[in-house]
Write a protein that binds this DNA or RNA. Structure first.
Lengths: 153, 153
DNA sequence: CACGCTTGATTGAATATTCAACAAAATTCC
DNA sequence: GGAATTTTGTTGAATATTCAATCAAGCGTG
């Protein structure tokens, strides 16, 4: 049996601060987006990724991957977005199993409006309240974390 | 109408890295805790907070507050933890509306085991993959963010 | 004291997410 | 070529979370 390696006091404090802060921030961003535009962060993320893809469309599997969602979850969520007319599904010629999720014109217009408010909130509660150097540190750190998580799978 | 203030390229990249990394990390921690001990992070957090409270118990409202959960959610979650025998509810003498959530002996023992594995995972995917200075930066930043979110309510 | 107002906590229905099972098409391998 | 396997995507049931309504108790004020 191996001895558990606990965090030291400072590490513990920083880790806890992160857990609490990130939960509260996520909660705020969700509420903000939901109250102003009826979207969750997960839905917003899907729209953003589609908007940036060539022809504003992506295969479901790839979209699930870059939006960090399970395929099942994406399937359900895209169905909801489809009902709202923001996304459309069309099947992919090359691979007959494949399905493209495509951002509609309405979806793009809707996203453009939502993005303005969302970015303002991200500024107000994230970018503008932290030191620029600390923001860089966060960027570095979470890139490394994402890599590590990806490596483990 | 005010001009939207977009993020510059670097801010954008760092913000996105954070969103992606934090979602992936949260997902991994949840899966890890769930597969090894049948707990979600939210449930784990509740147990931790109770374990640190005097007499290992807290009023529901206070627990909801420090665990960053809605009261409704806490109510449901505590019911589940109660079914598992990890937490008990007892009513508070002073304020007849009040309810204490208390960590049981079983709950404490259970948490002790779970914590060993959880901390190891936090090390493997968070603490040990980032620069110590960056960890400090994260601590500072998310403390400021949590304050800002709290201020806004 | 009694009226309105706030706080503490729970409930059930609506909504969202996970999980396991499935079907269909593509790929691998002999 | 064709059986076995993998990949893609969806589905429905089980589970969890949100949301709005409710109830009971405390508090403040005229």
């Amino acid at each position: 049996m191996t001895e558990p390696r606990w965090l030291d006091a400072v590490q513990q404090r920083d880790w806890r601060a992160y857990v609490e802060g990130s939960v509260r921030l996520a909660d705020l961003l969700d509420r903000d987006l939901k109250s102003k535009h009826g979207l969750t962060m997960a839905e917003y993320e899907i729209l953003v990724r589609l908007s940036e893809a060539p022809e504003r469309r992506l295969r479901m599997a790839e979209l699930a991957d870059i939006a960090s969602q399970s395929r099942s979850r994406l399937s359900h969520t895209v169905s909801r977005l489809e009902c709202k007319g923001l996304v459309a599904r069309n099947n992919c010629g090359a691979d007959k199993r494949g399905v493209f999720a495509e951002l509609t014109e309405d979806g793009f217009a809707f996203l453009s409006k939502a993005a303005v408010d969302h970015v303002a909130t991200v500024r107000d509660f994230f970018v503008d309240v932290i030191d620029p150097d600390d923001l860089r540190a966060i960027g570095r750190a979470f890139t490394a974390i994402a890599d590590q998580v990806a490596k483990a799978r």
